[in-house]
Design a protein around this nucleic acid. Sequence first.
DNA 1: GAGGTTATCGCAACTGCCCGCAATAGTGGC
DNA 2: GCCACTATTGCGGGCAGTTGCGATAACCTC
Lengths: 136, 136
Amino acid sequence: MTVADDMRAKGMRMTVQRRLVLDALRRARHHTTAEEISRSIRASYPQIDPSTVYRNLEALERLGYVTHTHLDDRVTRWRRADSRPHGHLVCRKCGSEEEIAMSVLEPLAKRLKGEHGFRADLAHSAVVGLCRECAG
Amino acid sequence: MTVADDMRAKGMRMTVQRRLVLDALRRARHHTTAEEISRSIRASYPQIDPSTVYRNLEALERLGYVTHTHLDDRVTRWRRADSRPHGHLVCRKCGSEEEIAMSVLEPLAKRLKGEHGFRADLAHSAVVGLCRECAG
DNA sequence: GAGGTTATCGCAACTGCCCGCAATAGTGGC
DNA sequence: GCCACTATTGCGGGCAGTTGCGATAACCTC
Ligand SMILES: [Mn+2]
Ligand SMILES: [Mn+2]
Ligand SMILES: [Zn+2]
Ligand SMILES: [Zn+2]
């Protein structure tokens, strides 16, 4: 089933704007921002409003085609849901970013499930702290 | 040594605005927002600008008197640094918030230190996911 | 293919927060 | 106390989103 069919089956519509956001996400680098996507679309279709890009990223996220993560700034990072999940370590001093395997985070997820019945999404927010160099 | 002396020793100044932010933090509930602090100050001193409150929260944080955490919205939560550190579980569906002991998070912090030399601050961002009721 | 329903759009205004700048006011030295 | 120095302030404007609203256009039915 195509994305368009999936959407229609859920009472949503496949608009040109939606298609452009999906295309931009395929072209974009690993962790892209809404602003980047908006800019790349508006280069060819300047009439498309940034708020439409934001709303469509959220709509595609609800359908499970897209996810987002937060590093240590105020910018949300978007990626296709079919890319490999992973965690992030972000240094609050030098700003360095390191990707880590989900297996490192799994024991905590398991414990939160067992002790609190909480199904944690530990890839959603980066782990903030001090990297090896800055911790000294 | 008082906060004022500590500040002066570091070349900073104890302004009335700074004092008002500290007082408001003492009066405020556990996890307060800059907007709440600003509003409570401006009730008596309407000439004090919100940006001054933001800047002073950051200044007090650099000195170690204040910290902040992020739950699942775009609002930063501030608290005095002398309050007991703890983690948060936030349900992205129903919005419920649960506080958890740092001891639950410590094994992960230890592992990140050992394997990546990274000194993680696991209280900084809430763990997002689905609570017992919403996970089903 | 035309028509009616309504999801989605563009736009304008708003949010929490951040920043440059000129004016103000704490500060240490006298 | 007064002065000179400069950290900090109020203000205006910017950034990353979010939201309400009336206009548009995708969809389903015929
Ligand atoms: Mn933060
Ligand atoms: Mn999020
Ligand atoms: Zn990554
Ligand atoms: Zn819940």
